[in-house]
Write a protein that binds this DNA or RNA. Structure first.
Lengths: 208, 208, 208, 208
DNA sequence: GATGAATGAGCCTTCATTCAT
DNA sequence: TATGAATGAAGGCTCATTCAT
């Protein structure tokens, strides 16, 4: 529904972003947004359909791009030989994590909107998209590496889901706590290490 | 652990609980609550101050009790000799975790309110109380066991905070996903194992 | 839902009446009504539930009274011997018609509201209440007087309904055209005569 | 009678008809109409002026044609000798009534629009056009037949107007109740008989 | 302490209509 | 002539909170 006005920055979107960031989705007022943007509430409806549409116009593009990028990365990773996959995962190669953090800071407002200011359903939907991909490729990884964690009970789908969720939730703490980029890099390196070791242990140990 | 469920005797609180559970904090209507309880909106204000006060009346007692119980446990734990502490932590003794899960299911409505139906600030406040205690006693544990993770950079306050947060967030998935108690026990055992190993690795390894 | 404030005239109802009379139900604005009455739109909802409730508060009491009066009259009439009924009907006794007209002029605003300013469903509902009674007692009259019009096909339920409808519609022309009371009396006498003769012919003739 | 149904060739009119029929005049939305017709709201304004204009475009042609047909019939009738007029009227010749009903069913949508979906003023305007003709030719009929009902008080202009109104209102019950054509013929025959006898009595009797 | 009517700002949304393109 | 985004007023209605009773 959103009609991107290509080059010029759209005042209405700008003001909506500000209002949503300041007030959160529910408390944000379309009247205030329209007034700030020197336009009418009606214009919001012509351009974005409704309040939800306006919010998504601020957020969807970046999220879709992120999802695509993640899927592409996972896709490529999953085509490597199993041994190489293992090595990559457990050697703490920081590239992917760091690129993700970079992406977040390049789209800071978008992530602030999603993490702190979105309708709860909207946030959870986006989180679930990420988690689903993560879970899907976790399974592919297990298969590629002949890991039987799913069969010996070390890993259940629920735990798999929960750990992926915890991973992204942990990552988004960066946004929730408004860390500086420097803080974020330190924090995420630690977070990664914690998770990698947790996973390593989970996948390599005998069942309890 | 006492099992007194606060407000059980009070129709107004009962109806408020129902409405908050069904509608969430923001969408819940004081008029509807008062009507359901055969009383007036004014009564809510004389007795609970405002909407927030009403919500807290449903939730605070159980949370305070939980906090107290957790603090007492941590207190007692911290008085043990360092060696014993280490052993307890890393031997996966399930008692505390399981008692926590029991507590959640005994106060199911309270946790549903907090995790799914609260104003976001209220949830985060409660989470922070738990996290702060966890962090505080983590530091005491490090001291008791002469661990230098804080000084060698393996653990930063931020990571410490984040991991405690992830622990409780992970725990509350049980509520968020409305698991059965049986599902919860399986899930939490896996979660515990993941975290314990993560911590062990973090605290015992050399810095990266 | 309407809470009659017994003795004193209610400013809100007064202003609502004015607005509905001037603008009609659909075009009337609750905001304007509240403003005229020096009160808030919310007050309308506390007292009358919604726009419909406000309208009905202006109209229902008088209509219920009228319905009761009509039913009582029909009831009494139906208990007379058949011969007497026939004579009454066909002798043009004007009392009932005239009392009805008097009633309309005593509740002029109510009828103006219903006939000219009501939501169409509301008007039709009221009309149907009147028509249903009329039809019901028409059938009783036929039975009392051993008239077989319903069986010989001179009168169908549809025609019966339509004629009763036409009768009341004709009567309400008095309101629609804002006749003076004097005009109304002349007009209604003629109308009555037309209908009485039509009915007489219908009921007494052979089927076509 | 020509059977051209105006606007049939035009998608915009087609969609407008649908929307007006479904929603009624007031509730119909020009935006919806334009969207359904794959055109713009602006197009409605360039072609039909405004919402009213659009409605009239659906309705006027058929109504004008009907009016013309009625006037022509009345005109021809009024040129007959008085005696013949009398005979025609009171012998229940069904031709005219039946042709009218046929016309209604040939232009069903137009009449549904006017009777059930029009702005009230629009319906009344159309009704008044019919009534005025009827009244005008009633007077001519009285003159042609040397009837003194207007002078002896049996018939006033108001009653004349009202009876014509009741006639058409009664006729349009056919549309209001969405009768089948078969039902309509039965009903209208009865209606006609009722009115003819009423008129006969009115015009031939002594004043009361 | 309880009541519940009143408050009045605020909500999202829809509308017929206009006008620059 | 057609477009369709913009207008801007208005819509009914709900809300947490207050306060005279």
């Amino acid at each position: 529904m959103a009609k991107r006005v290509e080059g010029r920055s759209d005042k209405l979107l700008e003001c909506a972003r500000e209002e949503f960031l300041e007030m959160g989705f529910q408390e944000a007022s379309l009247r205030v947004i329209a007034a700030k943007a020197d336009t009418s509430t009606g214009a919001i409806y012509t351009r974005f359909g409704d309040k939800d549409g306006l919010f998504h116009a601020l957020v969807d593009e970046s999220m879709d791009e992120l999802i695509l990028w993640i899927e592409k990365g996972q896709q490529e990773f999953s085509l490597k030989p199993g041994e190489e996959q293992k090595e990559d995962v457990f050697s703490y190669k920081p590239e992917v994590w760091e690129q993700l953090v970079e992406y977040i800071y390049e789209h800071w407002d978008v992530f602030r909107l999603l993490v702190r200011c979105a309708d709860i359903n909207c946030y959870e939907m986006m989180l679930n998209r990420l988690v689903d991909i993560e879970v899907e490729y976790t399974y592919k990884f297990l298969k590629s590496t002949d890991n039987d964690a799913l069969y010996n009970g070390n890993l259940t789908p629920m735990l798999s889901h929960m750990l992926s969720n915890a991973y992204y939730s942990g990552l988004f703490e960066v946004v929730r706590h408004e860390m500086t980029k420097e803080e974020a890099f330190v924090y995420v390196r630690q977070l990664r290490r914690f998770f990698v070791r947790g996973w390593a242990d989970l996948l390599e140990s005998r069942p309890e």
